[in-house]
Design a protein around this nucleic acid. Structure first.
Lengths: 336, 336
DNA sequence: CTGAAAGCGCTAACAG
DNA sequence: CTGTTAGCGCTTTCAG
């Protein structure tokens, strides 16, 4: 049996309240008893039961994290950021991978509720009305990570995906490309999907390249295979000079397909990715991509959530972190 | 305030014990009251407090997971496997990334203990004596994932890394390679590190190629950069015909360096990886590698742990799952 | 079948 | 300063 506060009290020959005190307000206990208690704790290797504490404080120092698909390389750093921030403030993370399945999401939210997590980090998926209702019913602090919601007043932290995609496409255009295509992600995804597609469209519009707007192929979340979408894009738009990919993995798949077909990158086609995952530095050629501060997004989100949990006020609802373009070797300037 | 069992009882005009009964032994309550209670639960959206329950049952349906470095692409699938198996049995996962820092490990183990997790999944790091003592002190069921321990009687599930590495190198040798090198992982790591190196050595020994045994370069966990180790290997052993990499990411880095230097793969050098991460299908050329069933390892480990938690007996202590070699395009047969 | 009461491990008044 | 007591939300005897 694990030792309880009672065991410590008995061994130290004090009441349980005294033991409780040396743990929570050591100064309120006379030295002699305090050391006796400390000795007993040490001897018994006593550690307080967080369940009992949680029951009283109504606080568990635990955060529930929801992730749509943990296989996306993107999350590793986001999670590290969350974890580091949480750890620093004494919180643990319960991580749930919903595999893009709404039934699982709801079931996980229930579990979070029952386990009395103090708040929720909801990652990169859209907040649909029924999700919102559920989230709202739980009445728990929540922050959206790498996603946001314009319909609802939910705090969030992410980059400006539309703007970043716009910047990427603009970069291609300013490098002389006029025939541009895109490998997008399903539009129902309101982070890698819709906004990045919208940024693409805005850049086209701004530079009178709207003829390119159908040069797009979309991958579906639950079946996506970068090689397959890449193939279909090549079939669909054989004569483009540049392709913007909504996710680095699509770009890597495209690089592979292009190579198979003997198409040279960047000589024949420029390829641009999005996310700047670690592998992006090792592709052949090295991938030009949009960098987003994944670690910081996770970190900031966790800090923001904890601030809300602890009732500190947090004036900005929707936070946007800066993005950048990392120019490597998969794109080139097109001479006219 | 969240509704409690008392609120339900009041609304349904029964005692709290009755409410408790409809949740745990519905048949022991007469229909009329049962429906009244059910209605009240529905109306109040009542959900029991898992803390209070855990306090009584001494069970939280929560598993603590320790991971050395979540950035390793390898873990995504292992975690999915764990998660799916855990979810199926009604367990949640608290995931902690120790970033290869033993202080963090100890601190996380304490948290697990205080939060009364029912068991621990300890992933891919060696079990040093002080770790073992700590683990042992907690007296919690534990299973080692993608690692094992010969010194201690701890249950584990993994592939046979030494044998897999041996098979990989043997494959190279049987394809005519005689000058073979290896990019290894620090030997203190007893999964990707030592055993894979030992497998390499055994193959060399068996085929009288011991002259190759110094063609090795090791990456360090906390600073590893695949491109840097790859560079150093090329410097050290410029005239080998094949390189076995202990981790796919090293192979990908090597592919990149080799390409930079104009060395053709597999024409000039064959490259072999280990793990078969998703990206391995998209490299240029596509990577020949050792496949390990990551999802299944995670799944099996979680099942094994839960079985132990629930007191079922589990005859095999150390489980080994099958591995395989996936031959793609980064290796070639060397004609003599 | 059902309610009252005790108790899981801990904290927080409240007296003393 | 310290012990006693009540109670966090729930389950489980134990009577009735």
């Amino acid at each position: 049996m694990k030792p309880t506060i009672r065991d410590v009290a008995n061994l130290a020959k004090v009441s349980i309240s005294t033991v409780s005190r040396v743990m929570n307000a050591p100064d309120s206990v006379v030295e002699s008893k305090r050391t006796r208690v400390l000795d007993a704790i040490e001897k018994l290797k006593y550690q307080p039961n967080a369940l009992a504490r949680g029951l009283i404080y109504k606080k568990t120092n635990t955060i529930g994290v929801v992730i749509p698909d943990i296989r996306n390389a993107y999350y590793a750093d986001v999670l590290r950021g969350m974890e580091d921030a949480a750890d620093k403030r004494g919180f643990s993370l319960i991580i749930s991978n919903m595999d893009r399945d709404r039934k699982r999401l709801f079931s996980y939210l229930n579990t979070f509720y029952e386990k009395q997590v103090d708040g929720i980090l909801y990652t990169s998926d859209s907040v649909f009305p029924d999700y919102y209702n559920e989230l709202n019913r739980l009445k728990m602090p929540i922050v959206l990570v790498a996603t946001h919601s314009m319909e609802y007043e939910l705090p969030s932290v992410k980059i400006d995906d539309e703007q970043a995609a716009y910047d990427a496409v603009k970069f291609l255009i300013e490098n002389g490309h006029r025939k541009i295509a895109m490998i997008g992600f399903e539009l129902s995804d309101n982070i890698s999907g819709l906004p990045r597609y919208q940024g693409f469209l805005r850049a086209l519009r701004e530079y009178d390249l709207e003829s390119c707007k159908d040069n797009v192929v979309f991958a579906n979340g639950w079946t996506y295979d970068a090689l397959v979408v890449a193939e279909s894009l090549i079939e669909k738009c054989p004569d483009v000079t540049a392709v913007f990919c909504a996710v680095d993995e699509f770009a890597i798949g495209l690089l592979s397909c292009l190579h198979e077909r003997g198409v040279k990158v960047p000589d024949d086609i420029s390829v641009m990715g999005f996310d700047n995952i670690r592998m992006a530095r090792m592709t052949i050629p090295k991938l030009t991509t949009v960098a987003q501060p994944m670690y910081e997004i996770g970190q900031r989100a966790a800090e923001k959530l904890i601030a809300r949990i602890e009732g500190q006020d947090d004036p900005v609802l929707r936070e946007y972190l800066p993005h950048g373009i990392v120019v490597r070797a998969s794109t080139r300037r097109l001479e006219r």
